[in-house]
């Protein structure tokens, strides 16, 4: 069943000013429940505007966003309720931390949602566990945490609202390889347990190819492609023409294919590439 349906969605900035710019241009697309959607496109492709329309932070200039079949702007006064169903983690979310303790900060969302103290306690501790924050850290001031811990605390603040759809806008930006690895694993662990729909916006094609079920490619406000990572990254030329890259390993296998070697296209991981190349080497009698 599709959880979000987007119909003829458009958004134009600064209408009737010299700065008028179409950020999202007539997008039609459906997302299934429990899917991990990777969203790629270079800066200015409209992907940030698009995801902010999913939870009603930006009101579309035309078109609709249907959440479980209902237009989210049907009752504009109740748009806040949508934000608990579609959680949104912005880029560098650690800059939104504000409360005295990490615990209180994570409980901000659930409290706004109107949960009682027991429910809040339960959901805060569960969210903290997902992102690997210990009980000891919960009583600390968020400003005393390390960079990586702050990031995870901020993500927990959104997870704690228990959204059916979770949007993550470049959650790993600026982290070191170790921090990135840990965070990705935690997000996937969370997804496995909660089984909700996740939007993952990223510039890292390696990350996208690892975790996404389907990938959306946006370019100049339009939805250019929407398919499995394997099929998307198999189209190296098209991706590169939009100023994007494919994972290095995909590129290597594609280049070998172009030179006439019999390999599967759309290889996404080093492990896959390794077994492909080993098989080829065996067939050719090199090893």
């Amino acid at each position: 069943m599709s959880i979000i349906e987007v119909k003829d969605l458009s958004f134009t900035y600064g209408i009737n000013t010299p700065f008028e710019k179409k950020a999202v241009d007539d997008v039609n697309v459906c997302f299934n429940e429990g899917e991990v959607i990777g969203l790629i496109g270079h800066t200015g492709s409209g992907k940030s505007t698009f995801v902010q329309m999913l939870n009603g932070l930006i009101k579309p200039t035309s078109g609709q966003v249907l959440l479980e079949g209902k237009d989210i702007w049907e009752k504009p006064k109740e748009i806040r309720k949508i934000r608990f169903k579609v959680g949104m983690v912005f880029q560098y979310p650690e800059y939104q931390l504000f409360d005295e303790t990490v615990y209180k900060d994570i409980s901000f969302g659930p409290r706004n949602k109107g949960l009682n103290e027991n429910e809040i306690d339960l959901t805060v501790r569960k969210a903290a566990k997902f992102v690997g924050l210990s009980d000891k850290l919960l009583n600390k001031s968020p400003f005393d945490l390390s960079g990586g811990e702050k990031r995870r605390a901020a993500i927990a603040g959104v997870i704690a609202m228990d959204p059916d759809v979770l949007v993550l806008d470049e959650p790993t930006a600026g982290l070191d390889p170790k921090g990135r690895e840990v965070l990705l694993a935690q997000i996937m662990g969370y997804h496995k347990e909660r089984k909700n729909t996740i939007f993952f916006v990223s510039h890292s094609m390696e990350d996208i190819s690892r975790i996404a079920d389907r990938v959306m490619v946006m370019n100049k406000g339009r939805l250019e492609m929407f398919d499995t990572p394997k099929n998307i990254f198999a189209q190296v030329e098209k991706i590169e023409s939009m100023g994007l890259r494919v994972p290095q390993i995909t590129k290597i296998i594609t280049m070998l294919r172009e030179r006439g070697y019999d390999l599967t296209d759309g290889v996404l991981t080093v492990e896959q590439a390794f077994s492909e190349v080993v098989n080829l080497l065996k067939r050719e009698g090199v090893i």
Binding site: E181, Q248, V270, F274, V278
Partner: peptide, 17 residues
């Protein structure tokens, strides 16, 4: 926990065979 370019990682694995 430092990254290695995927190209290098692939070749490193191939050196194992």
């Amino acid at each position: 926990s430092l990254d290695v370019p995927q190209a290098t990682e692939l070749c490193y694995k191939l050196s194992g065979v």
